[in-house]
């Protein structure tokens, strides 16, 4: 190398970004060139000075707390998005069914509107690829979701929300019954039974095949009789995954495992 390498080339050399031949040429030059050796020291000194200065701006970070906030933010966003879709679907159903409700006194829609304590059959209305959904208000701060006859492949999951109603997403092929403060899901062959529980509810229960699987009471969440910290057990969407049979009968709560699996494939 007859010419002196400029600062840009020396910087590229220092950063290890030159090709093998390029780096070798710079090194050969440096061996016999005192001014360039001094330039390299100046560049190194600046780098050290810059790193020391920038480090003064750094703050402590808690990745676990941050991960939890990311999951919560995403759960809230998806929940809001789903509510919008559900509301849109409900408008369509009501518009289409309004005439039938008037014309047919025994129709489900009329009963749903009129009924309070009286059980009402609700037709399954697909709102997304996973199946059907409805939401209902608590009664005196309490609610109950029952599921019977779910297929073996159906997943179970719950999560807490800051809303006041219970949201029930049922697997494909399921049918609903609902009344004041309760809903019953029957059947369903694929997808998931997903229940969103108002965190501030006095008491909400999820009963599957006559077994109490989830009980939220005064902000204490129990899954299969065990207290659960949602912050530790939920996946990135805030869901807590339940085994199909209660813990103790065939294994524990899958926790964020399903979420991990999905994420390992997703991004």
């Amino acid at each position: 190398m007859t010419n002196h390498p400029d600062d840009g080339r020396l910087q590229t050399y220092l950063d290890g970004e030159l090709s093998f031949d390029g780096a070798e040429a710079v090194e050969r030059h440096l061996l016999g060139c005192k001014p360039c050796q001094e330039r390299v020291e100046v560049l190194r000194g600046r780098e050290a000075r810059v790193q020391a200065a920038l480090s003064r701006l750094d703050q402590e970070v808690d990745p676990q707390a941050a991960l939890w906030r990311v999951r919560q933010a995403r759960a809230r966003r998806r929940s809001a998005s789903r509510r919008q879709r559900l509301a849109a679907a409900a408008v369509v159903v009501l518009l289409l069914g309004a005439g039938a409700a008037v014309a047919m006194p025994g129709s489900p829609i009329r009963g749903w509107i009129a009924g309070d304590d009286e059980p009402v059959q609700v037709e399954t209305t697909a709102v997304d690829a996973e199946g059907a959904a409805l939401s209902f208000q608590l009664r005196n701060g309490e609610g109950r979701v029952e599921a019977v006859g779910l297929g073996d492949e159906v997943e179970l999951r719950v999560r807490l929300t800051d809303r006041t109603e219970v949201y029930v997403g049922a697997p494909a092929g399921a049918s609903f019954e609902t009344g004041a403060g309760w809903a019953r899901v029957t059947g369903g062959t694929r997808g998931a039974l997903q229940v969103e529980l108002p965190a501030d509810a006095r008491s909400v229960r999820l009963v599957v095949d006559d077994q109490l699987r989830v009980h939220l009471q005064e902000r204490l969440l129990e899954v299969d009789g065990q207290a659960v910290d949602p912050g530790l057990r939920a996946d990135e969407d805030g869901w807590i995954h339940l085994p199909r049979t209660p813990e103790g009968e065939s294994g524990g709560i899958s926790g964020s495992g399903a979420g991990h699996q999905q994420d390992a494939e997703d991004p």
Binding site: L57, V61, A66, L67, E236, D263
Partner: peptide
């Protein structure tokens, strides 16, 4: 690489970058 692994690996650096930015 799972989401959690990516988060553990990148978040502290991303946070530092943003704090400096």
């Amino acid at each position: 690489m799972s989401f959690e692994q990516l988060f553990d690996d990148v978040y502290p650096r991303l946070h530092r970058y943003c704090t400096r930015m």
